[in-house]
């Protein structure tokens, strides 16, 4: 039986800092699924997701007294993100991949334009019940470049704020916004092509341009 603790994250952290293992354990109970899911989506590998999850909570033990932020969730997911990104860098043997590097795609002038525009075949809450949809959305996410994928995971799946996402990735908030927009547009295109209702397809009206 899990003992449900209704304290806030910050209260649990404070008690953990005083050496109460039970408080720390409650935080682990609260975040282990999220951390594991985040690690899985970034690394795409079960064993790596386990390593990252364990490293995240070990780091938490090491750095308990260092926490100065406002949001414990932001802090925990930031540590998890850093561990997951290390795995990616190691795997791609690019130890110096910089998330702060910007390129032409980090501007609004070259946004991918919506092409296949249609209503969904069924409401998203119905679509997501199907195994094939769940596989397709994960496949679509996997196809994105890391710089877009990771921003989408943190911001739209884990619901970190723009600022927390920027801090976790060490990029500017402006960069988070434009990368997120590109990620959303690319995923939209791919998923509506697959799960859109062809009969409702419309074409952009260029009279407005």
């Amino acid at each position: 039986m899990e003992v449900v603790d209704s304290s806030t994250d910050e209260a649990l952290l404070a008690r953990a800092r005083e050496g109460q293992f039970a408080a720390f354990q409650s935080l682990v109970d609260r975040y282990q699924r999220r951390v594991y899911g985040l690690a899985w989506r970034i690394t795409r590998h079960a064993a790596d997701a386990e390593d990252v999850t364990q490293q995240t909570f070990l780091s938490l033990i090491e750095n308990l007294t260092a926490f100065r932020g406002v949001s414990a969730a932001g802090w925990i997911l930031r540590i998890a993100t850093n561990h997951a990104l290390k795995v990616l860098r190691r795997r791609r043997s690019q130890p110096h991949v910089s998330w702060s590097e910007t390129d032409a795609n980090d501007s609004y002038s070259t946004l991918p334009h919506p092409d296949f525009i249609a209503d969904w075949q069924a409401p998203p809450e119905v679509l997501v019940q199907r195994q094939e949809t769940r596989q397709a959305i994960e496949a679509a996410l996997e196809e994105l470049d890391d710089k877009y994928r990771v921003v989408f995971i943190l911001r739209d799946i884990e619901e970190l704020s723009v600022r927390e996402t920027a801090e976790a990735l060490d990029i500017s908030e402006a960069n988070v916004k434009v990368r997120l927009l590109r990620a959303r547009l690319m995923l939209r295109e791919r998923l509506v092509r697959e799960f859109g209702d062809e009969a409702t397809r419309v074409f952009p009206d260029h009279r407005h341009d």
């Binding site: 998203p124 997501v128 959305i137 547009l185 995923l187 859109g196």
Partner: peptide, 15 residues
């Protein structure tokens, strides 16, 4: 579509 896309990813616990 964009709202639906985000909703699809937030649903469930895939891992």
């Amino acid at each position: 579509n964009i709202r639906g896309t985000i909703q699809l990813f937030r649903a469930g616990e895939p891992f």
